[in-house]
Design a protein around this nucleic acid. Structure first.
Lengths: 247, 247
DNA sequence: CGCAACACTTGACTGAAGTCAAGAACCGGA
DNA sequence: TCCGGTTCTTGACTTCAGTCAAGTGTTGCG
């Protein structure tokens, strides 16, 4: 009866998750009946890289971090997920192992869907494969975005982009509360905490004020413009050579 | 009758592709009947980012590069694919747009499977969704690998890893022919051609000799060890402080 | 054949970001 | 309240990798 504990509002989130949205109501109910609502405190490990995938997770509250331990001992963050996000559906259905580890970074409520249930459901409702592809498609895109970011943008630019995505407006001034600790943000953006600190300082020159967890942005559009800039070798300016002298 | 042109050996590659391997023979035949065998010269564009996905591709020969144009004008290579690899199955089936562009970088023979065919087949053989997930799972893993590499390894280490993956043996000496131009390798590894040149030079100190397209490796195991090393601040050595003097 | 592209290499320089170390601010618990 | 831990910041320094520029070698074309 674990689904008895799932509130009405949670059900809505579940129904709208790309993974479930294409499924008929009875398929969803069947999955929910087998699933378990779990509470996990910060620092809990949901699963570890290379473990056999026995369940996938839908985040209802809190934050979950996906990461890889590298040979050199530090971790490479692959993504940070929140309410409505689905984790590890693919290895779960294809019967493989988790390709990453998952750790709760802010007290979380998650729906754990056991792989057994899905594999069975697969026969009854084969369109679940397609539903899952929809969800996976998003993940692929996110990963590609991240690769592009790492390859083509500097630290401050990645941070600017991160802030723009968090912002509630498209232009003009606004205030942003950082969703989790700077340590984690640094990981998410592929840099060290020290570098993140300095990245924040750099952003002051494009109208960003920092106060602990609260960021005040003068103009989001300006920040967005900075994020996508030509790898700003501006600042160099030892002279007036904006144009080019002939000859 | 386009499949009449598909050779016996090609059929085997098709059957073994993760995308097709789980499908019943008649489903494969049905797909092949609608597909087209295409030849593309180097520098041909298969599709462009943000175009609607009208077909997916199975590479039979040659090399195909997936990439993103960044705001700053240069390209971020997301992957380079060869015989047996499947490209863009996901957006094709979910009816989205291509998230990247695809360009042929070495004269290629590809099987183009129109999206219409798959969407139809979806009703007759719904397990195709699952088959596709198997293929997608590989892509996800590759992307995660790449992110980990970019975040945690230096240029020379990424190159070392690249060579190790190409190597025909697991240990001992061997010779490797670079599969495509260094310009492209540089892109694939997320660096500029100049940096790649220097990365090759650095590898000489772990027993690698370079001669144009041919790489001679003294000991693959040693190279692998280098690839996964602790971000080698070795070489520093201005003195004898291997240990630490007390106080 | 000569010439213009192009791929690749090399060197000098610069900026980006990691390391090391120290210190400030902020918990949570005894 | 004090203490120990963690997070975050700052500074000095080093390494990594991109830029600019020049030079070599190869290739393809008129």
């Amino acid at each position: 009866m674990s689904e008895a504990r799932i509130g009405r509002y949670d059900r809505e989130v579940i129904r709208e998750a790309p993974m479930f949205s294409a499924l008929p109501a009875e398929a969803i109910d069947s999955l929910l009946a087998q699933s378990e609502l779990q509470f996990h405190a910060r620092r809990t490990t949901l699963f570890e890289q290379d473990d056999p995938a026995t369940a996938f997770y839908l985040v209802l509250d809190g934050w979950v971090k996906l990461f890889r331990m590298t040979v050199s001992g530090d971790e490479a963050v692959v993504g940070v997920f929140a309410r409505g996000d689905c984790i590890a559906e693919v290895p779960c259905l294809t019967g493989g192992n988790y390709p990453v580890s998952a750790e709760v970074v802010a007290d979380a409520r998650v729906l754990a869907v056991p792989s057994r249930g899905i594999v069975e459901l697969t026969r009854a409702a084969p369109e679940i494969g397609l539903a899952m592809l929809a969800s996976t498609s998003l993940h692929l895109r996110k990963l590609v975005d991240q690769i592009e970011e790492l390859k083509a943008r500097t630290g401050p630019q990645r941070l600017a982009n991160f802030l723009v995505e968090l912002a509630p407006v498209k232009q003009g001034p606004c205030t942003i509360a950082l969703p989790y600790e700077k340590l984690l943000i640094a990981g998410r953006l592929g840099m060290k905490p020290e570098s993140l600190s300095r990245a924040f300082q750099r952003l002051q020159s494009v109208g960003v004020r920092i106060n602990h967890n609260t960021i005040a942005v003068g103009d989001i559009a300006r920040l967005a413009e900075f994020a996508g800039r030509e790898r700003l070798m501006a600042f160099r300016c030892p002279g007036f050579r904006v144009g080019c002298a002939p000859g």
